[in-house]
């Protein structure tokens, strides 16, 4: 069975639900503490840096965690082509470690800056819509996404604005299709205004990969939208209708939610036979 390490850095808070959804799609998931010897990260097929507040976001979100030996080890594994997913705070760590976009080896080429929206500052917790693109990460991270490529996902962050001060890096992210997930409005068009665009990120980016596509820094939390019961009752559109229809039925509520596709895609990539996966 394919094995996934979920890195537990002091201050993260999403490791258990991440393990739960990884197991739901047929993967063996193990929480590895960041102060274990780096060798504890050997023999895994993929890595997840979950959400939370590593080191309480001291200095800057992800800044301290990015320098951990465990993250260096994961960077080396990413260099071998193994999948690495950073969700929210995990995304901030990947960016601060230079793994995303990772155009120049070892260089930090962007930031996850404080949210920017007119007359609004600080932490934002709400559901958004993202469109999955066709960049180099699409095969790995979206292969299980059938039909509509616009997916509702929840966000919960204060520093989620992908930003680079280097115009050449911005151009390569855009032309290379590295902004794999982008915020869109209810019609599926690029989000032009708050709240569809929750933070003012470049290219309305919700998730950016490296050029190879195997490392994904994703600000929304797919693990918090991996079961139908997690979808808000008042959500508009097909997912909201499914959610409302499921009221009163435990089995219906336990079906896959909109964020499940990401983990299903990872499981497919890692060769988990479909029979081993719990398919809703």
């Amino acid at each position: 069975m394919a094995r996934v390490a979920v890195l537990q850095i002091p201050g993260v808070n999403c490791e258990y639900e991440t393990v739960r959804v990884l197991e739901e799609v047929g993967l063996e998931a193990r929480i590895v503490r960041s102060n274990e010897p780096s060798s504890a990260l050997a023999d895994f097929d993929a890595f997840v840096l979950p959400g939370g507040f590593a080191f309480q976001d001291r200095i800057r979100a992800g800044a301290v965690a990015a320098k951990l030996p465990a993250v260096e080890r994961i960077a080396a594994e990413a260099g071998e082509g193994k999948p690495v997913l950073g969700v929210c705070n995990g995304a901030q760590v990947l960016v601060e470690a230079g793994l995303v976009p990772g155009l120049e080896r070892g260089a930090v080429e962007m930031a996850l800056a404080p949210n920017r929206a007119p007359r609004r500052q600080g932490y934002l917790c709400r559901w958004t819509r993202v469109r999955a693109g066709q960049g180099p990460g699409a095969a790995l991270w979206t292969s299980a996404l059938e039909g509509d490529r616009v997916v509702p996902l929840p966000i919960a962050h204060g520093e989620g604005r992908f930003e680079t001060a280097d115009p050449a890096v911005a151009a390569r992210i855009e032309t290379g299709g590295l902004a794999l997930f982008r915020y869109v409005d209810a019609e599926g068009s690029p989000a032009a205004h708050y709240p569809d665009d929750p933070n003012g990120a470049m290219l309305q980016a919700a998730g950016i990969t490296n050029a190879r596509g195997n490392v994904l820094a994703l600000m929304p939390h797919p693990e918090r939208g991996s079961w139908l019961f997690q979808v808000p009752l008042d959500w508009a559109g097909a997912w909201g209708e499914r959610r409302r229809s499921a009221v009163g039925s435990r089995s219906a509520l336990d079906e896959a939610g909109p964020g499940r596709f990401l983990f299903e895609s990872l499981a497919r990539h890692l060769g988990v036979p479909r029979a081993e996966r719990v398919v809703a």
Binding site: R60, G98, G106, A107, V108, A111, R161, A165
Partner: peptide, 16 residues
């Protein structure tokens, strides 16, 4: 300013 994974700490020059 952070320029690499082992270079810089207190400032991320892409946001500051």
């Amino acid at each position: 300013p952070v320029t690499g994974s082992r270079r810089g700490l207190l400032v991320n020059p892409h946001s500051e």
